[in-house]
Computed example of a mutant assay.
Amino acid sequence: MEIIREKEYDTVMKEMVEPYLKKHGKSGYISSYDGIGKIHVMRYLTENPKGVIVICHGYTESASKYDELVYYFLQAGYHVYLPEHCGHGLSYRLTKDPSLVHIDNWKRYVRDFLYVCEYIRKKHPDLPLNLFAHSMGGAIGGIAAAWKPEWFYRVILNSPMIRPRTANIPWVISASVAGVQCLLGKGEAYVPGQHPYDASETFETSASTSRPRFERFNNLRKSHKYMQICAASYGWLFASVEMSCYLKGRAWKMYRAPMLLVQAEEDDYVCGNEIYKFARRIQKYKGASCEFLYLPGTKHETYSCDDKAMEYYVNRIMRFLM
């Protein structure tokens, strides 16, 4: 598959991709699993589909970040559904702070996601459902695929949050502090070092290795308040701890669908060695086939890299989905 080249990226996205997505896409809402809010879902339908892909996005992300990848999936013959998690994008939130990512319980993420997947399966009962899950979404999707292994035909965990990085603070200390703060009723407080959105992110400090790809979403984010989430609460941090424990303790034994785990070379957001160890556990257990893809020269957002890496990455994913 031909990818969009960096030198013509802005032009092609504006003149070809965005109109195409507008024509094939539809915005809608589905109730959360417990009915307390609405989950925003983008639906994109292609002609003569051979399958469906549901994208499980990452921490602080929103649907627009995946426009390029959605376009490739549509071109390859897949319907695409992209729900925005609680606290993200246009979905319901559990805090009034527009910058804060907060959750009351990690199972809310998984149950909401599976609720959407159940809706997709009912809409397209004759098409195989594939999962592409990135970062925090890799943890959510990784658990969802363990809870409902029979639902998914192929599973891609892209830079999955098997364990998040916690800056210079040891993981055990971060986990313990988060748990204590939640017990003290401070789950909605900012984790130290986090702050409200100030539009200060730069390409050099980003998780991307493609300036045009980074700048497109960064400019969209500056223009849309609902995209400006950027900081973690203690509640979110403790949820990430519990998801990590579940993934490493139980989930790896429960998979049945063929899997592809992707690790970036330079990842400042999740622990790369934990992704590799997770893949090895799945491979040794043999409940599901598992391929491991290491991408040299990339950062956390492997779907936002330079032309050479992007072309290899996109085509590797397409071959896996076949």
Rank of each mutant, 00 (worst) to 15 (best):
I4A: 08
T11M: 10
E15P: 01
K22P: 01
K23E: 14
M42P: 02
M42N: 12
G51M: 10
V52G: 04
Y59Q: 10
Y59R: 12
V70D: 02
A76K: 11
V80L: 12
Y81M: 14
Y81R: 14
Y81K: 14
P83N: 09
E84V: 15
L90W: 06
D97H: 00
H102R: 05
I103W: 12
N105M: 12
K107G: 00
V110P: 03
Y115D: 06
Y119D: 11
H124D: 10
P128N: 09
L129W: 05
L129E: 06
N130D: 08
G137N: 05
G138T: 07
G138K: 08
A139M: 01
I143M: 11
I143W: 02
E150I: 12
E150Q: 13
R154K: 00
V155R: 00
S159D: 12
M161D: 07
I162M: 12
A167C: 00
V172F: 08
V172K: 10
I173H: 05
S174E: 02
S174D: 04
A175D: 02
S176G: 02
A178C: 04
L183K: 15
K186D: 06
Y197S: 05
T205F: 00
S206E: 07
A207R: 09
A207L: 08
A207E: 03
T209V: 14
T209Y: 01
P212N: 11
R213C: 07
F214W: 15
K225H: 05
S233L: 05
L237K: 12
L237V: 15
M243Y: 07
M243G: 05
C245S: 06
L247P: 03
K248D: 03
W252A: 02
K253H: 06
K253S: 03
Y255K: 13
E265Q: 14
E265G: 03
E266L: 02
D268H: 09
V270K: 09
N273C: 04
N273G: 01
A279K: 03
Y285N: 01
G287L: 11
A288V: 15
A288P: 05
T298S: 06
E301K: 12
T302S: 01
C305A: 04
D307I: 03
M310W: 11
V314T: 13
N315S: 05
L321G: 02
